[in-house]
Simulated scan of single mutants.
Amino acid sequence: MTDATYSGDPAYLRAAPAPAEPPPALAQGPVAWARKNLFSGVTSTVLTVAAVAFLAWVIPGLVRFLFVDANWQGANADVCRANQSGACWPFIWAKAEFFWYGPYPETQHWRVNTVEIVGAVLLGWLLWQGAPKRNVAALLFFVAYPILSFVLLHGAETLGLPVVTTDLWGGVTVTLLLSLVGIVFSLPLGVLLALGRRSPLPIVNAVCTGFIEIVRGVPFIVVLFMANFMLPLFLPEGWTPDRLLRPLVGTALFAAAYMAEVVRGGLQAMPKGQFEGAASVGLSYWKTMRLIILPQALALVIPGIVSNFISLFKDTSLVAIVGIFDFLRTVESGFNDPNWTSPTTSATGLITAAAFYWIFCFSMSRYSQGVERRLRAGRRH
């Protein structure tokens, strides 16, 4: 309708669009989120109230123990014996170096620091999704870095580095080493075992299936004992594996068996049309797996893969049973120092260990969630 054809009063006509009204307060924001996630029904409300009550009961006491009533300074445990209502943080400060390096010679700590810094840089480069030349990072991390790490940590007289035997390795260094080796080797071994279990060749299928079922049917401690005491029996005389290499092999094989079942679940979830489409364009079996099936299958089971990695990281604490001085073992050995014996020393050390494991496990979980979000966004586009 135009002014030329309208003869009435045009005063009520709007000359510009009306400003957008904000949505109702209960449709967005914290209130809407709480209604949807915390109070969506009777069961949700009861659980929310119970959780809040539990936190209100636990958190104040924990805060008092860790911060308010804690002991922050002291040359020995006298201050912690005098004040038994708070954490004994001087114990952590005094033993921090031992917790990190174990009995590794103090004058050679720079070698451990170099290995850890280089590893952190390469790992960050490899995991950064937008980083340039990630293939170079992968080559350096999986090929050059292990050689550099062994030379630096073990030493070589020809290079002027004193030899440090593995019985002097310990602390956080050993925990990170066990976890990294287990994670790096368990995934490719798990993929091969999963493919072997699905193989139409009876012998390959039987060997892979038998290995997976046997390993998954025994506790991790048994695998460690078998790797520590039985592995040397299968090698020629004089070829006894290093005391640290044995649990490394056992850890990698144990994790690979569980990883194989996770990968097999992803392979079984792939539609048959993916295999038929690859066959229609003439791709061989291995090219089909490498280019089409495995990338999609592994993306589907990222939560399961990361869950296995997290379990593996925590399970490395069990290697102390076969004499490996990992991080948790160093913390426990610190309790035996008579200079730091107090009622709160053990609790402080164990809380510190729990925080250490939680930080690493939570970081892995958050990174995997970020990868999942990016993959979902890619599939939507």
Score class of each variant (00 low, 15 high):
Ala4His: 11
Tyr12Leu: 12
Pro17Arg: 02
Ala20Cys: 06
Ala34Tyr: 02
Arg35Glu: 02
Lys36His: 07
Asn37Ile: 02
Leu38Met: 07
Leu38Pro: 01
Phe39Leu: 01
Gly41His: 01
Thr43Lys: 04
Thr45Ala: 14
Val46Pro: 00
Val49Gly: 02
Asp78Trp: 00
Val79Pro: 00
Asn83Leu: 04
Ser85Gln: 10
Ser85Val: 05
Ser85Ile: 00
Trp89His: 11
Ala94Leu: 00
Lys95Val: 00
Glu97Asn: 07
Tyr101Asp: 10
Gly102Tyr: 07
Pro103Glu: 06
Tyr104Glu: 02
Trp110Phe: 08
Arg111Trp: 06
Arg111Asp: 02
Val112Tyr: 04
Val112Arg: 01
Val112Lys: 00
Val115Tyr: 08
Gly119Pro: 02
Gly130Glu: 13
Leu139Asn: 14
Leu140Ser: 13
Val143Glu: 01
Ala144Gln: 03
Ala144Ser: 12
Leu152Thr: 14
His154Thr: 13
Leu159Glu: 05
Gly160Ser: 03
Leu161His: 09
Val163Arg: 15
Trp169Ile: 03
Trp169Val: 01
Leu176Val: 11
Ser179Thr: 12
Val181Gly: 08
Leu201Met: 02
Val207Ala: 12
Val215Lys: 04
Val223Lys: 06
Leu231Val: 11
Leu233Arg: 15
Pro241Cys: 11
Asp242Gly: 15
Leu245His: 08
Arg246Phe: 00
Ala252Arg: 09
Leu253Tyr: 05
Leu253Met: 11
Ala257Pro: 10
Val263Met: 06
Val263His: 08
Val263Arg: 03
Gly265Phe: 06
Leu283Glu: 12
Leu291Pro: 00
Gln296Ala: 14
Lys314Gly: 01
Phe327Asn: 03
Asp337Ala: 06
Asn339His: 12
Thr341Val: 14
Thr341Ser: 11
Pro343Gln: 07
Thr348Ala: 06
Tyr357Arg: 13
Phe362Lys: 08
Ser365Phe: 14
Val371Ile: 15
Val371Gly: 02
Arg374Trp: 11
